[in-house]
Amino acid sequence: MLSFSRAVSRHLRVDNTKTSSLTGFSFAPARWIQGATSSTTDTEAGEADTHDDFKPRYKKEDEIPTIHQLIEEDVKGNPVMVYMKGVPDAPMCGFSRAVVQILKAYEVPFSSRNVLQDEELRQGVKSYSKWPTIPQVYVNGEFIGGCDILVNMSKTGELEPILEEAKKAQSKRVG
């Protein structure tokens, strides 16, 4: 049951300031969507596979991926990944809103998850990064910081080159 509730409650949102149609992912069938990449991780049991290598890695309830494994997939699979309160179009917290505004200002597409929908994710994100607050921003798999750090890096000019790298990674994936 745990795997089922996880599957229905977690949406990965992909926000692309240039092609807003990508936000349609939020209406896709609810499951652990890897939005910015073409790969999906299938955790469902009972699929017929011919070789051990192709069998689902997690078959039983107690073998479903841990929250940290799922977060790792997120941050490695999405050049810019944001854990926030609410969704980009309706942030539920001023700090999350500020992060979204900054990323939109740089016109960098990003993926996000709403920690308010999922208490396990909310706690998991904090323990994964050993960072006690939300929002959290990851670029190319690396933890960048929360709202204050993003605001500061934006002011000092440090943020732009980092996000440019992420844009490059994104265009490679698409191309």
Binding site: K130, W131, T133, F143, I144, G145, G146, D148, I149, N152
Partner: peptide
Amino acid sequence: PLVQRHRQVY
């Protein structure tokens, strides 16, 4: 770096 400063406070 900023992340480290914040961690110190946290």
